Simulated scan of single mutants.
Amino acid sequence: MAIQRMLGEMAQMPAEPVDSNGKPVTDPEALLNIAKIHTVKDRLDNIETFDWFSVFDKRYGGPNWIFKEGVTPNPTIQEHRHLGPSSGTPGMPEKIVLTEEVQGKLPKGNVDLSKTNKGLTGSDIFVDSKSPSKISEAINDKISETTGGTIQQNATLEVLGKTNTRWTREFDSTDASTSGNTSVQDSNTLLNRAIESGATNASDLLNVDLTGMYHGRYVSIVRLSSSSRSNTPVVEITASNSSTNAVINKVTLNGSDFDVANKYQSFFLIFNHDGKTKLRVRKLNTTSSIKVRFDYTIVEPVHPAVFDR
Rank of each mutant, 00 (worst) to 15 (best):
S197F: 06
D274F: 11
A261I: 09
L206R: 07
E236V: 13
N231M: 01
G275M: 11
D295H: 07
S289V: 01
D257V: 10
A199Y: 04
Y218M: 02
V260F: 08
K283E: 07
N285Q: 15
D274R: 13
R223W: 03
R217C: 10
L205M: 04
V281C: 00
P233R: 00
S288F: 11
V302A: 15
V251P: 02
S197D: 00
S242A: 06
I290K: 05
T277R: 09
R280K: 03
V302E: 14
I290E: 03
N231H: 03
S243M: 15
R223H: 09
N285C: 03
T297M: 14
N272C: 11
V281L: 05
T244V: 08
Y214Q: 14
G198M: 12
N241A: 09
N231V: 03
I221T: 10
N249Q: 14
S230T: 11
S266V: 02
S225A: 15
P233H: 10
V219I: 14
I290W: 02
R293P: 02
T287V: 06
P304Q: 12
F271D: 03
T287D: 08
R193Q: 05
A246K: 14
I237D: 01
N272W: 11
S197I: 03
L206N: 01
I195D: 04
S266M: 07
S289P: 02
D257M: 11
P233Y: 04
N241C: 10
P301R: 11
V247I: 15
N207H: 00
T232W: 07
L269P: 07
T200I: 11
E236K: 12
P304H: 13
V208H: 01
E196V: 07
L206D: 04
K291W: 06
F267D: 10
R229K: 10
T286G: 08
N245G: 04
D204G: 06
V302L: 12
G212K: 14
F294I: 02
S266Y: 00
T297H: 06
D259Y: 03
L279N: 00
S240K: 11
F294M: 08
A199G: 09
S266T: 06
I270V: 15
G216V: 02
K250H: 08
L224N: 07
Y264D: 06
R223L: 05
V299W: 01
R282H: 04
F267C: 12
V222K: 09
L279Q: 05
V292L: 09
F271W: 05
S197V: 08
F267N: 12
V247P: 08
T277S: 15
N245R: 15
R280S: 00
T200M: 01
V235C: 09
S227F: 00
E300A: 13
S240T: 04
L253H: 04
H215R: 04
A199R: 05
N254L: 14
L269F: 09
I298F: 13
L284G: 08
D257S: 03
